[in-house]
């Protein structure tokens, strides 16, 4: 799983029928502190996330393991909205 910030939504009418009724979110990958990285992902929303949310993304074949995304041809899903990330140990 990776951290990401939702930066937008994607609207599409012509798409695979398995994607009907699913919200597509444009996400930018960030590190644990929220600092943006260079990668963008389009992910299906499984937790009613909104623009600006700090979320957890699951990718690859695991992304199809939710009721919303079963059988859908997708490879990224928003699985959680993050409240807080606590770093308890530092490796130096």
């Amino acid at each position: 799983m990776i951290f990401a910030k939702v930066i937008g939504t994607i609207v599409s009418t012509q798409k695979d029928p398995n994607l009907n009724g699913k919200k597509l979110l444009l996400c930018k990958e960030v590190d644990h502190s929220g600092k943006p990285l260079e990668t963008y992902h389009v992910a299906v929303d499984a937790v009613q996330a909104g623009e600006g949310s700090f979320v957890l993304l699951s990718y690859g074949s695991s992304a199809r393991m939710t009721d919303e995304t079963k059988n859908a041809p997708i490879d990224a899903v928003v699985i959680a909205i993050i409240d807080d990330v606590q770093i308890t140990h530092q490796f130096k």
């Binding site: 009613q48 957890l56 939710t66 909205i81 606590q86 140990h89």
Partner: peptide
């Protein structure tokens, strides 16, 4: 384990599972 991720709203299957 160097940190904990807290998320109250998550996919149902992950309820009660710590990250």
């Amino acid at each position: 384990v160097i940190g904990v991720v807290w998320a109250s709203r998550k996919v149902e299957a992950l309820d009660a599972c710590r990250m």
